[in-house]
Design a protein around this nucleic acid. Structure first.
Length: 193
DNA sequence: ACGATGATGAAC
DNA sequence: TTCATCATCGTA
């Protein structure tokens, strides 16, 4: 099988383009010698300081500082005191933009993705390279554009005009036309150790 | 429909 | 230092 680690140049583009292109790519996690690779099925783009849905819109703070890093760095934070959110930084250095990984195969929802792959804030600010234990790969899966649905982002109703921008990308299920990856088979309690 | 659960950022 | 809010999820 062809395995190509996604390099910095892949992420050095606009967040919207990277978000779209990440659908069908693989998120790979290595813990204690074991590797698990899951295809990405859902993403969202957060594009620049003008994007009112982005943490970057309030300016640079201790939490969101990784968004200003070079592309391919991770931005991981906690929401609702419960869920770790996994983002990859995109675009030029010092331009705050990132893509949120919202779903992988068998796992819908950003909090479930991080729980399934044991991703926490210890990865915040690290690079998406094999040495860090979490990275992205192209494994040769080709996704027809028709299979990717664009919608507004989730949970950002406060963001004014930016709330309705179609910055969310969802891989449609092969057999169903409505609503992304099958809702029926969500694995509950998957973990990697 | 709602509570969990804790960090963050802005106000006081 | 206090307080409202939060890029969500599981149970009801």
């Amino acid at each position: 099988m062809k395995r190509q680690v996604l390099l910095q140049e892949f992420f050095e583009r606009s967040a919207v383009v990277v978000a779209r292109d990440l659908v069908g790519k693989f998120l790979v996690r290595k813990i204690r010698g074991k590797e698990i690779a899951l295809m990405i099925t859902e993403t969202e783009a957060y594009e620049g300081e003008n994007d009112l849905a982005s943490h970057a819109s309030r300016g640079r703070t201790a939490r969101n500082a990784p968004m200003w890093d070079e592309a391919r760095h991770f931005y991981v934070y906690l929401v609702y005191g419960v869920h770790e959110m996994l983002n990859v930084v995109t675009g030029k250095h010092n331009y705050p933009a990132a893509v949120l990984v919202r779903g992988v195969e068998g796992c819908t929802g950003p909090g479930r993705v991080t729980r399934a792959l044991n991703v926490t804030r210890t990865l915040n600010g690290k690079r998406a390279v094999p040495e860090s234990g979490l990275w992205f790969e192209d494994r040769g899966v080709r996704i027809a554009p028709r299979r990717i649905k664009r919608t507004p982002r989730v949970g950002v109703a406060y963001a004014g005009d930016w709330a309705s921008k179609p910055y969310r990308f969802v891989l449609l299920d092969e057999k169903s036309n409505r609503g992304g990856v099958t809702a029926s088979r969500r694995s509950r309690r998957s973990t990697v150790q």
